[in-house]
Design a binder for these strands. Structure first.
Lengths: 406, 406
DNA sequence: TCCAGAGATGAATCCACCC
DNA sequence: GGGGTGGATTCATCTCTGG
């Protein structure tokens, strides 16, 4: 319930020992850069320094602060240290020193998708959060998530025993039938968290650099604290941790060296804005409007699938005179003419000069007529392979009939 | 090409300096346990020791071996060190020492779903692979993946410029229409890889502890080597790396201290088995060694693939008068006539009355002639979609020429 | 040759607006 | 209003250039 300006090393000394349930630390990452960002309306600029004389200096800086963290943490308390790839391994060595290897709990991977850029190598798309507790007797609330769509639910309900060789097998009754066991609650939360990166357009954005999504902090707070517990963030920055704590009815203490950051934090606490990720709520599957068959056809014509356009299913990777070439796959319960209408309409706004329509249904009228009509529109009609094969087999049967009747 | 029994430290000394393109290391993890596992029929038991007097001993053991790795690696080469959570940070510190921090490339997260255990805390479901190169000038092949379903594909086809405030905006011509940029390839592969853990029942499973999925190794080999390059695995265990290298036509060297492991590796190399994964489209057993294009064609004509080396790539699921219908996909560097010869020859012995040949290459002579000839043989020639599209675009360009010359 | 700073990158996804 | 589509904005970036 307090937000303090100052160096967290000094300010933590003012806190009593064993008084905090959870510490989340998001210190500088040793990027050797100054990070700045402007608010959207260009009125304010926030920045923090992350430049150091040496790695040793940096590690020394962090270590003394971790030691204070250890002191103020309750015996049931936990600490989460947020790192990126630059120096995470050295930070974890420090944690081993201060908290002991035996109190390592998890290496949490925060994984997200992000806009890419041209880079030789793999696109980095995760950050690491180390989870240590002060003792073995740490507070932990298990969160259960949904089973993955491919899980065989029947199977997980089955009870297991060990056979004579020590292998785990399903328990069976005397008739050899599998016995169903107790009901399961879901899959316990794993250490890999897919949470969308704070979107460039999200209202939650404050203009403070390196701002974290509230959803991430909520998850951390939920698993290691109950309502009324105390959460401490010694590098609170824009105050995301405190906002999440407030939303979840936890007490909170925030410290930051920058008074701009503290001002911002106080403003956010007055009026918390949280972006509910549509993507997380609906699930990625809900955005997928194409069937596997359609995707497979699109791949075989070397096209990129488009999921959010009702008339166009994809674009060819090649273009024509700088204009995209749109693709539609005829749907079931859709005539070729209807498919053509939709494709033409949607393609107009994209400035497509050429279009491809894939026929997947065998219809009454002959292909020849359609072809002639359609080509006037710069539209190519392709038959899906199974359509071609069906037509061919029908023809073949017909011609056999002709031969035999002669 | 060689599989060696012995301590990799000694054996690597026999390799020349700068002779290897890729090293994948999967050393013991410092779990302080002896790992044993039985084959499914309980006839064999494999085990290896992972107990050490101290962490220092363990790190010393690894470090001298990493130094040999550094020596044998080509200047364009890369090393991948597979770790689990226990000691990954200390291993990375070693890598910094031997390869230098500046040659750190990626922290790859291999994430998978797992059966839950009822431990207090988060269910661990990832392992870490450190990717270092010997120099800045390392070999790297970018793999492109699909766009997120939420991506606004229409828009990313557009080109961009900076406005007067330095903000990035989409480029428009004098009429205010957006201008389209270059063609898109997809999203570069990230450093978080979702690859299913070996299903306990998978055929691929050999009974050797800590076995890795082939898909994981295939991905590593693909991004850092070309065909004919040399792959080294100093702790080859059951030989997964070597099997993957063989499938992808890379040369390989494997070393392991256990002669049981080497025997098993040699058996696997004789007859590689790759597990069928429902979660991943690629990598199904019967598709081994086929190109992506062939796979997608076989899938889209709903054919059952057959093993290679005959004239037939698969059979349609439908048949004709009780006789199978054979399919061949024209190979690169193969004329349509050659493809036809092979298909006819192989189909005769199978008693096929009908055959399907998929043309994948654009050749000189016209399709029409071929069709007439071929149909006498009860053989349907289908054009792969991209062939049809190429022909169509060529025709279209020609017809534009005609119009303008009139 | 090295470092700093300018310039190019490019997909993700929420938001706003439109019927 | 609510479903769909066009737009905006970003980088714990990445690469390249010049002194």
């Amino acid at each position: 319930m307090s937000v303090i300006t100052g160096d967290c090393y000094e300010k933590m000394k003012g806190l009593s020992s064993e008084s905090v349930d959870l510490i989340y630390l998001d210190p500088p990452f040793f990027t050797q850069k100054t990070h700045t960002l402007k608010t959207r309306d260009n009125t304010k600029e926030f920045s923090f320094e992350d430049t150091w004389d040496s790695l040793q200096d940096y590690l020394k800086f962090i270590k003394v602060r971790l030691e204070e963290c250890y002191r103020v943490l309750k015996p049931t308390g936990s600490i989460f240290l947020h790192c990126d790839k630059t120096a995470s391994h050295y930070l974890r060595v420090l944690l081993d020193e201060v908290f002991d290897m035996s109190n390592f709990r998890s290496e949490i991977i925060w994984s997200y998708k992000r806009w890419s850029n041209s880079k030789k190598g793999l696109l980095s798309s995760h950050q690491t959060i180390y989870f240590y507790s002060k003792t073995d007797d740490f507070k932990f609330n298990t969160i259960y998530t949904d089973y993955s769509p491919t899980t065989n639910i029947d199977q997980i309900l089955q009870e297991r025993v060990r056979d004579e060789n020590g292998k785990s097998v399903y328990k069976r009754n005397d008739d050899g039938e599998v016995i169903l066991g107790k009901e399961k609650k879901g899959v316990p939360l794993t250490d890999v968290w897919n949470i969308p990166y704070l979107n460039p357009k999200a209202k939650e954005r404050t203009g403070y650099p390196t701002q974290k999504p509230i959803l991430l902090l909520e998850q951390i707070i939920k698993i290691t604290t109950d309502e009324g517990d105390v959460v401490l963030d010694p590098f609170c920055g824009s105050g995301t941790t405190l906002v999440a704590a407030k939303i979840l009815n936890r007490k909170f203490i925030g410290i930051d060296a920058s008074s701009d950051a503290i001002t911002l934090t106080n403003e956010r606490l007055e009026q918390p804005i949280k972006t509910e990720s549509l993507l997380l709520q609906k699930g990625e599957e809900k955005y997928i409007g194409r069937t596997d068959e359609e995707i497979s056809i699109l791949k075989s014509i070397d096209a990129i699938p488009v999921q959010r356009n009702s008339g166009i299913d994809g674009f060819l990777k090649v273009n024509y005179l700088g204009k995209p070439i749109s693709v539609r796959i005829q749907k079931q319960n859709e005539t070729l003419l209807e498919a053509r209408q939709k494709l033409l309409k949607s393609s107009k706004t994209k400035g497509c000069m050429l279009m491809v329509l894939v026929r997947t249904q065998v219809e009454e009228h002959s292909l020849f007529e359609i072809d002639n009509d359609f080509n006037k529109e710069n539209l190519l009609v392709l038959d899906a392979f199974d359509v071609s094969i069906k037509l061919w087999m029908n023809n073949f049967i017909d011609s056999l009939g002709d031969v035999s009747s002669k």
